[in-house]
Amino acid sequence: MQIFPCPFCGPREEHEFLFAAEAGKVRPEPAAKVSDEEWAAYLYHNDAPKGIAREIWYHQTCGTYFLMTRDTVTRDVKDSRFLSEAST
C-alpha cells in the first residue's frame, strides 16, 4: 500500500487517489482544426515510462488535482505539488 503526498492533505494511502493523466499533455484545440491522429494521441497515447514518471493524480477526499513525480520501478515518490505550482 503506497502512501502519496497530497499537497493539500499530506500523506495518505493510495486507495484515496485516482490516476488522472500523464503530465505534459496539452489539449489540442479548437476541435475543428484537430486531426483524428492528434486527438487520439491526446486521449490514448501514453509514454508509461519505466523509471521517473510525471503524472497528474486526483485526491478523491479533498478534490485536489496535483502533479506527482515518482519512480515507477522503486515506487519512490520524488515530488508532489499543486497544478498551480507546476511548470507545465
Binding site: G63, F82, L83
Partner: peptide, 17 residues
Amino acid sequence: AGVIQKLEDARQDRFGS
C-alpha cells in the same frame, strides 16, 4: 462524485483555480 471530479479537473487544470 464523478461529476465533481470532472468539474474540478476543468477548474484546476484549465481555469487555474
